[in-house]
C-alpha cells in the first residue's frame, strides 16, 4: 500500500460519503444520475466476486463491503425511498447505460488477464467503471446549475482514479514485475473523461461562481 493508493481510496470513500450526505440532508437526488449509481453497483459486484474467497487484508475486505453496501443503498434510495424517488428526474437521465454494460462485457470477453470467470468479470468491472460516469456527466450538462454537493461528489469520484494513476506509476517504479495494463489504460481513459468537468469545476472555484457545464 502506498500513499497514492490510500489517498485514492479515501477520496473514493469521501465521494460516496458526500453523495450520501447530499441525499440524506436534502432528501433529494436532483442532479444525480440513477444510471451511474446502478453502473457503479454493478462495477463493485462484478469486481469483488472474490470477496469471500480471496482475503488480502482487513482493510481490503472492509472497503469492498463498504463500496458494495453504499452503492446498493444509494440505488435503493433513488429507486424506492418515497421522498428521494420523487426528486429523480428520469426525463434528464436518459443515457442508454445498458449499452455501456454490453460493450464493457464484450470487451472483457476479448481483453482480460486470464480467460476465467473471475478475471472476465474483473476486466468487465474495470471497463465499466471507466465509462460509468457518462450518464452523470450528461445529466449535469442537461440540468444546468449543479448543486455544490453533487459537484463535489463528481470531483472526488474523478480525482480518486487520478490518484490511482500515481499509485500505478509509483508501483511500476518500485515493484520489479508490476504491470497492470488493463487497469492503467482504463484508469487513464476514466480520468480523461472528467477533463472538461475538472476544467469547469476549477473555473467555478476560481471565480467563486456556481458550477455550470456548457450544454
Amino acid at each position: 500500500m502506498n500513499i497514492f493508493r490510500l489517498a485514492g481510496d479515501m477520496t473514493h470513500l469521501l465521494s460516496i460519503l458526500v453523495l450520501l450526505l447530499k441525499i440524506y440532508a436534502t432528501k433529494s437526488c436532483s442532479g444525480v444520475s440513477r444510471k451511474t449509481q446502478e453502473l457503479y453497483a454493478i462495477v463493485f459486484l462484478a469486481r469483488y466476486l472474490d470477496l469471500f474467497t480471496d482475503f488480502i487484508s482487513v482493510y481490503n475486505t472492509f472497503m469492498k463491503i463498504v463500496f458494495i453496501a453504499s452503492s446498493l443503498a444509494i440505488v435503493w434510495c433513488i429507486r424506492v425511498h418515497p421522498m428521494v424517488k420523487r426528486s429523480y428526474d428520469k426525463d434528464l437521465d436518459t443515457f442508454r447505460h445498458y449499452l455501456l454494460v454490453a460493450a464493457s462485457f464484450l470487451l472483457a470477453l476479448f481483453l482480460h488477464e486470464k480467460f476465467t470467470f473471475l478475471e472476465i468479470f474483473w476486466a468487465f468491472s474495470i471497463y465499466l467503471e471507466a465509462v460509468a460516469i457518462l450518464p452523470q456527466l450528461v445529466l449535469l450538462q442537461r440540468s444546468g446549475n449543479v448543486d455544490n454537493l453533487t459537484g463535489q461528489y463528481v470531483f472526488f469520484l474523478g480525482a480518486y482514479r487520478g490518484l490511482y494513476i500515481l499509485n500505478w506509476i509509483y508501483r511500476y517504479l518500485t515493484e520489479p514485475r508490476f504491470t497492470r495494463w488493463i487497469a492503467c489504460v482504463s484508469g487513464v481513459v476514466q480520468t480523461a473523461l472528467y477533463a472538461d468537468f475538472f476544467y469547469y469545476y476549477f473555473i467555478s472555484w476560481k471565480n467563486n461562481s456556481k458550477l455550470k457545464l456548457p450544454a
Binding site: M1, I56, S57
Partner: peptide, 10 residues
Amino acid sequence: IVEGKYHDEL
C-alpha cells in the same frame, strides 16, 4: 497486506 496477490487493489 499480502502484496503481490494479483488484484490487491480496490
